[in-house]
Amino acid sequence: MEPIHSYTDKKSYIDQIDPISKLLFAFVSIFITYLFSSIPITCFVLLISIVLLMVGRVLRKIVPLLAISFTLLLSIIIVQGLTHPTNEMPLLTLGTIVFYQEGLTFALLITLRVFNMLAAFGVLILTTKPDDLMESLMKQGMSPKISYVFLSVFQLIPQMRATLGKITDAQRSRGMETEGSLMIRIKAFFPLLGPAVLSSLNMTKERAIALEVRGFSSKGKKTFISEEKSYFYPKFVRCGLIILLIAAIVWRIVG
């Protein structure tokens, strides 16, 4: 079975950056793509996230996720290309169907933003030990429960992938076709979603019980088994990101 955990220590430069700085990077990077509705700027920000993923040696891990999101984004591209309110200039004609430049440009911006969102959070999740992230959030004053929920959201994707894999294997053994053309894969995908979601919900309930019996709700002071890590100039990195954010806002207002 494929391992379901998202983090492995690659001992890269990105692993040396503290979790809060990486979280801040994810927010700043996403915020900038929404602050400027510009394809070149969004491309540039996405490029930075991709470079960071490359430096962190985790770019390959994010590719399947980008591919899955692209299949979902296809519907947005089609709808916007056909029906965006500002559509004027035809760009592509397929028989009687006309795709317009304005709609496709808008869809491209959305796609780039989603890709950047995934890549930026990928930098955080794929290069940060989950425990370190949780510990850092708790040290920033976040409650353990909220820190865990925050962490779980990101754990959910690899876990659901693993669950989906198991259910696919089970359905395949009962004769369902899951390999072949895109159509066959799409047909097989939707019946798997129900059991995958139900199974994940059940697992979440069981995990909540497991946490409860291991004192997660304990109101006393918590301790940590790991020694405190020293990161690469955390204050310097965070200040840099905040300055970048302020500069972007000022540029947007003034420019």
Binding site: H5, Y7, D9, K129, P130, D131, M134, P144, Y148, L151, S152, Q155, Q159, R207, R214, G215, F216, S218, G220, K221, K222, T223, F224, I225, S226
Partner: peptide, 18 residues
């Protein structure tokens, strides 16, 4: 789901108990 080694996994309950 928050621990990356068996050693740390076993520590989870103890950490919560302080």
């Amino acid at each position: 789901g928050s621990k990356t080694t068996v050693y740390e996994e076993i520590a989870f309950g103890l950490e919560n108990s302080g």
